[in-house]
Design a protein around this nucleic acid. Structure first.
Length: 195
DNA sequence: TTAATGATATACT
DNA sequence: GTATATCATTAAG
């Protein structure tokens, strides 16, 4: 498996940038494999970031961010969509990176079926879309992406060109909403919102 | 522009 | 324990 614990224990903004270009691979229990190249991420910096779920402290929902790095923090948003994050940052800090979009690479037929569309650009271009396309639910919450065969990462062949932008839909966070903590692969057609 | 839809956090009894 | 406001979104109109 490609990515080590030490990678995720770097500064969270560094991890968010370094995840771009890497492949996210999902193998279900019944043998279906889907994979894609990460093209959009957002950094959520714990106690330094009013937009982060862990900003106000540890709760039942956010406890995995307080645990070991490189684990999956998955939650249900708006009652209907799942979001996938990877815990990151210095050990002890409750931080993480939201995976917002991927470029479909493998198992595209399976993704089309799960998403109910055949438009490649619409398959994984958003946090709720990519979890649906890859069959990711809260059942996978807390798993270790450096160990699990069900969900893991593979290193990028070459680091892509990166564009920074403001994060999306965190207006409630006041000044933190202005931080350029969203990162996209430059020129990618598969991001949720173009920078 | 807005409805859909349910877990969760918070503020109560 | 119970009530209610909130939401790191999406697809349809």
């Amino acid at each position: 498996m490609g990515v080590t614990r030490a990678f995720f224990e770097q500064d969270t903004v560094t991890v968010a940038r370094a995840l771009l270009g890497k492949q996210l691979v999902r193998c279900t229990e019944d043998g279906q494999v889907t994979a894609g190249r990460i093209v959009e991420t957002e950094a959520y910096c714990g106690r330094f970031d009013a937009a982060c779920h862990s900003y106000k402290g540890k709760t039942e929902r956010t406890k995995v961010m307080f645990g070991p790095k490189g684990h999956a923090y998955i939650y249900l948003i708006y009652g209907m969509y799942h979001c996938l994050n990877v815990t990151s940052g210095p050990p002890g800090e409750p931080e993480g990176v939201l995976i917002r979009a991927i470029e479909p690479v493998e198992g595209i037929a399976v993704m089309e079926e799960r998403r109910g569309t055949e438009k490649l650009k619409n398959l994984c271009s958003g946090p709720g879309k990519l979890t649906m396309a890859m069959g990711i639910t809260r059942e996978l919450g807390g798993i270790d992406l450096t160990q699990s065969p069900r969900l893991y990462l593979e290193a990028a062949p070459a680091p892509p060109e990166i564009v920074a932008a403001k994060r999306i839909n965190i207006d409630y966070a006041g000044d933190a909403a202005d931080h350029l903590w969203r990162f996209c692969v430059a020129g990618s057609h598969f991001v949720s919102v173009k920078p």
